[in-house]
Design a protein around this nucleic acid. Structure first.
Lengths: 121, 121
DNA sequence: ACTTTTAACTTGCATTTTGCAAGAACAAAA
DNA sequence: TTTTGTTCTTGCAAAATGCAAGTTAAAAGT
């Protein structure tokens, strides 16, 4: 990874500062685990972008592919503690969106109650 | 603005979910007010991107151009309360970056102490 | 076992966004 | 009035994104 600077904020954005990464992680906090879960999402991510982002997030250590059933290459995705560490930032963004953009949905309680500790290992 | 969905998080990212917007706002929290202040930043933003982002952030109501000296079209930029509302999200991202990306700088105390209320009007 | 269906991707190509280099408009200073 | 520095604009190449279509592997049905 090559970072624009040593700033922790700019560097965080070098990793998840695109249009989709945090949307994917949001979905995982809400319980999504499979490729098709992510596609069901109302934001309608394109399949090539989704596949590329899952690869990138895994490489960055934010998510990992758990072997679902033996013999299967493809599995289900789970947040790592590192990925779950972004939950507070997501919640802050959600708060901001609710309060500053008209007509947004409310973040479900399950989302606001989520804590990084809920995603160990 | 057309949003991908009604989700407050996805919508927030439709506004500031690019590589530069939050870096610019970070700089403003740290005291940057002029075009040249933003260029001095270690991330080395390109001038065309900077100008476009300032226009866009102003249009979105996150920043505004205060008439610096009379007769001057160009002024200095300031965070609106709406823009300053992103401070908690930035701080959470900063925390995450410090804890999860090796070799990052520490966010200065001035940054962590900043509160949206510090930017009224 | 074998066909069908669904899930998990890949590929190709058009569109949009980003990045760099150069230069123009304006204000302040000399 | 020339110079200097700041604030933007323009043109073009490169990268990221979006859409449509196709491919591969696993699961489900017969």
């Amino acid at each position: 990874m090559n970072f624009r600077s040593g700033c922790p904020i700019a560097s965080a954005l070098d990793i998840v500062g695109d249009k989709w990464s945090l949307v994917i992680i949001r979905s995982m906090v809400m319980g999504a685990t499979s490729y098709s879960d992510f596609l069901k999402t109302p934001e309608k991510i394109a399949t090539n972008i989704l596949a590329e982002r899952l690869r990138r997030l895994e490489l960055a250590g934010l998510i990992l592919q758990a072997q679902a059933r033996r013999g299967s290459i493809r599995g289900t995705y789970a947040l790592t503690p590192k990925g779950a560490g972004l939950i507070p930032a997501l919640q802050a963004l959600g708060q901001w969106g609710e309060q500053n953009i008209p007509g947004r949905w409310k973040c479900p309680d399950r989302f606001n109650a989520a804590r990084p500790e809920d995603f160990p290992r």
